[in-house]
Simulated assay, not measured.
Amino acid sequence: MRVGEQSTDPIDQILGEVPVPASLTPEDVRLAVRAVVVHAAEEWPAGPKCRNDGAAYPCRLHRWGRRVLEAHGLNERQIDALVRHGNPFVHVPFPFVLSGPSAGRPSAAQSPRGPAGRVAAPPVRPALRPGGTGRPVAPPATRPRWPRAS
């Protein structure tokens, strides 16, 4: 069954589709991302089923999540990329703008304080040992930076 087709599941026929909110909030977008990732397809001998609830794919929540993300401005390819990514907590900007900064936040060039110029860091010289041997000392080891879950 494709995403746009009508479901033949009796529960879907009784309950109908989950309505998309008239005005989307950041919480709606977060929930929609979770819905499409958690309720992704899983192959079974009888055909694809929802990974979360075992209903025929796409289930009600997956369809709702896709409709919300489409209303938010994402296209099919971007939604499929979210599903393939597999992280239900990935951040989708609100409001979603395809190019450039969002209208609500000014860029560095539009900042009320003027353009933010970058200052180059001074060149780093190797530290000398206290004994005065003149040999460079290795910088102290830093903790590894692990990737954050958005």
Rank of each mutant, 00 (worst) to 15 (best):
A71C: 13
A71H: 13
A71Q: 09
H72L: 06
H72V: 08
H72A: 12
H72I: 08
H72K: 09
G73C: 11
L74I: 03
N75M: 02
N75L: 05
E76P: 15
E76H: 14
E76W: 13
E76I: 15
E76V: 15
R77A: 12
R77K: 14
R77L: 09
R77S: 11
R77I: 07
R77F: 05
Q78E: 14
Q78G: 11
I79N: 01
I79S: 10
I79R: 09
I79G: 09
I79F: 01
I79Y: 02
D80S: 13
D80Y: 09
D80E: 12
A81G: 14
A81C: 11
L82E: 00
L82Y: 00
L82I: 07
L82R: 00
L82P: 01
L82K: 04
V83H: 03
V83Q: 05
V83P: 01
V83M: 04
R84A: 15
R84T: 10
R84D: 10
H85M: 13
H85R: 13
H85F: 10
H85Q: 11
H85Y: 07
G86W: 14
G86Y: 10
G86Q: 07
G86V: 10
N87R: 13
N87F: 06
N87C: 02
N87E: 09
N87M: 08
P88N: 12
P88R: 06
P88Y: 06
F89L: 06
V90D: 13
V90H: 05
V92T: 12
V92G: 04
V92H: 03
V92D: 00
P93R: 07
P93L: 10
P93Y: 00
P93M: 04
F94I: 11
F94E: 05
F94T: 12
P95V: 15
F96I: 03
F96S: 06
F96P: 01
F96E: 07
F96V: 08
F96Q: 00
V97M: 04
V97A: 08
V97G: 02
V97I: 14
L98R: 06
L98D: 08
S99E: 04
S99I: 13
S99F: 08
S99R: 14
G100Y: 02
G100Q: 01
G100V: 11
P101G: 08
P101K: 02
P101T: 11
P101A: 05
P101Y: 00
S102R: 13
S102G: 15
A103P: 04
A103Y: 02
A103E: 07
G104P: 01
G104T: 15
G104M: 14
R105W: 06
P106E: 15
S107E: 02
S107W: 00
A108W: 01
A108T: 04
A109L: 12
A109N: 12
A109P: 00
A109H: 10
A109G: 14
Q110H: 14
Q110P: 03
S111L: 01
S111R: 03
P112E: 06
P112A: 06
P112Q: 05
P112K: 08
P112T: 08
P112V: 05
P112F: 06
R113I: 10
R113W: 11
R113D: 06
R113Y: 10
R113E: 15
R113K: 13
R113M: 02
G114L: 07
G114K: 03
G114Q: 04
G114S: 04
